[in-house]
Simulated scan of single mutants.
Amino acid sequence: MDRHPKRLAILTGAGMSTESGVPDFRSQTGLWAKHDPMQTATVQALEDRYDHFHAFYGNRLESLQFIEPHSGHAIITEWQKKGIVSVIATQNVDRLHQKSGSENVAELHGNLREFSCHDCGKAAKQEDFIAKKHCHRCGGKLRPNIVLFGEQLPMQAWEYAARYIRESDVLLVVGTSLQVAPVNQLPELAPGESIYINEEIDTPVPFTRTIQAKAGEGLQSLSKEWQM
C-alpha cells in the first residue's frame, strides 16, 4: 500500500528560501524590519521614489546571484518527477524551485527574474533595469515582474493553484506565516489532509497536522515517512 499522497499540492513561502540564504520579510531580522514596505514595495514607491525602489530591488537581485536551492527544493522536485505533485504554488520570487528543476510553478507574487515597463507592459531585459534605462517603446520606468503591495495577484497563477488545491488529497504548506492575503485563504480550499511545516508555529493554525522544523528538515522527514 502506498504511503504517499496521489495528488499533493504544495504551497511555499519565504521560509522555504531562507535555508538558501534568502532573507525573509517578517522576522525580527527580515527585510521589512530594515525597510518600510509601504515606502519601498508599492506602486507609489515605484512612481514617486524610483531611485529608492530601484536600489532596493537592485540589491535583492544582486543578493540572489549566487543563491542555490537546498535539499528541500530537491525533494519537492523529485516528488514532482515521480508524479505525485499536482501543483507547486509559491509566494517566493527567487525562482529557486525552477532552478532546482521543478516545472509549472505557480508564482503567486511574480518573480525577480523577468522585467517589463510599468507604463506599457513591454518586456524588458534585466540589464536594462539594472542600468536604470527607460522603456524603449514609451520611455516608462522598468520594473521586475513582482506583485507590489496594492496590486492584484496574477490571475492565471492564482486560478491554477486554486484548482489543484481543490483537487488535492494532501495540501503541504511550507515556510509561510500565512499573514498575507489572499494567499492565506488558499489552505481553506483543501478538501483533505493538510500539513504545515514551519520553523515557528506561534499561533494555532487550521491544519490537520503541523511539523515544527526548517523546510529542508521537515520535507526530509515526510519523504522518509512516505518512503519516497
Rank of each mutant, 00 (worst) to 15 (best):
P191K: 02
L222M: 11
I130T: 12
G175C: 10
S71D: 14
N92T: 09
E199Q: 15
L178D: 06
I130R: 13
K6L: 13
T210F: 07
A131Q: 14
H109C: 12
G139C: 11
V205E: 03
E114Y: 11
I130V: 15
R113F: 12
S63I: 00
A157W: 02
Q152I: 00
G121F: 05
N145A: 04
Q28H: 06
K122S: 14
A181N: 10
Q227L: 13
D36F: 07
P191N: 04
R26E: 05
G139A: 09
V43F: 07
A41R: 06
D51N: 12
Q220P: 00
A9Y: 01
I201G: 04
G30H: 10
N59W: 09
W32P: 12
V93K: 06
E19M: 08
T90Y: 03
R113K: 15
K214G: 15
G175M: 09
G150N: 12
A161C: 09
L189T: 00
L172E: 03
W158L: 11
Y196V: 08
W226H: 08
F129H: 09
A162F: 01
R163T: 10
A74D: 13
A162T: 05
E107N: 13
S168E: 01
G140C: 11
H97N: 03
Q39D: 14
S63A: 15
L64H: 04
H54R: 09
I195E: 03
S71H: 11
Q126C: 09
G21N: 05
A190G: 03
D119N: 13
A124N: 10
C120D: 08
C117S: 12
I76S: 00
Y50F: 15
L96N: 10
V22I: 13
P144E: 08
D128W: 12
K125C: 05
P204W: 02
R137H: 15
Q91T: 04
E19V: 09
H4C: 10
L171G: 02
L189A: 01
G175L: 09
A9C: 04
G150V: 10
G21P: 06
Q80E: 14
S100L: 01
A157G: 04
S221D: 08
A33M: 01
D119K: 14
W32K: 10
A124I: 08
D51H: 11
H4W: 13
L46W: 10
L186R: 00
E151I: 09
G150T: 12
R26C: 04
P144C: 10
F25R: 05
W226L: 07
S63F: 03
L8F: 02
V180N: 05
M155V: 13
L46N: 09
R3F: 11
H4L: 05
V183P: 09
Y57H: 07
V183K: 03
F56H: 06
V173S: 03
V205M: 15
D94Y: 04
V147E: 08
K122T: 15
